[in-house]
Amino acid sequence: MNLETLVFYLFGAITLLAGLRVITARNPVHAAMFLVLAFCSSAGIWLLLEAEFLAVTLILVYVGAVMVLFLFVVMMLDINLDQLREGFWRWFPFGAALALIMVAEMVWVLGSRTTADTVGAVQHAANYSNTKELGRLLYTDYVYPFELAAVLLLVAMVAAIALTLRRRIGVKSQDIAKQVQVKKADRLRIITDESERKTDAQSGS
C-alpha cells in the first residue's frame, strides 16, 4: 500500500465517521461542526484526485459561507432535539429493516461483479492547471447549463424575497430618502423664553 492509498483511506474514514456523527450528534451545533469536518476531509480527497480548484472552492463556499450561515441559524433557533426525536425508536425497527433490505439489494447487485476498468486516478503534468481547464469547459462546452445555473440562483432570490418580504404597518424602519431630504426646520425648533426676551428688549433700548 503506497502513501496515496493510505491518505485516501484516512480521509475516507474521517469523512464517513464525521458523516455518521452529523446524524447521531445530540447537539445541533456539534452536528454542524461535524459536517464542516466532513467537508474538509472530502476536500482532502479531491486534492488527492488533483482537483485543487474544486477542493479550495468546497472549503471557501461550503465551510466558509454556507456552514457559517447554517451555524448562525442553528444557534439562533432553540431546537429541542429530544422532542423532534420522539417516536424515533417506535419506527426504528421498520426503518432499519427497510434500510437493511436496500443495502442487501445493493450489495447483491453491485458487489459480486467488477466495476468498469479502473486504472487509478488520472495523472497530470506539473504545469497542468485545473482551474484553467474548468474555466475553459464552463465557458465553452457547458456555457448553456452554466448560464441556466445562474438563472436558478435568480429564481431562488426572487422566491426568497417574495416569500419573506411583508409590509407591516407600525414597524420602525429607516427611510434613507426621507432622512437625506430633511430640512433644518423639521428637526430644529427655536424657543425664546421670557427672560431672554426681556434682556433683548433692555439691551436694544
Binding site: Y142, L152, V155, V158, A159, L163
Partner: peptide
C-alpha cells in the same frame, strides 16, 4: 443529463415558491 436536471430544478423551484405564495 446536465440540462435535463437544471431545467427540472428551475421548474420545481419556481413551483415550490408559487405554492407557498
Amino acid at each position: 443529463f446536465v440540462t435535463l436536471y437544471i431545467g427540472l430544478e428551475l421548474l420545481a423551484l419556481s413551483l415550490y415558491a408559487l405554492v407557498a405564495l
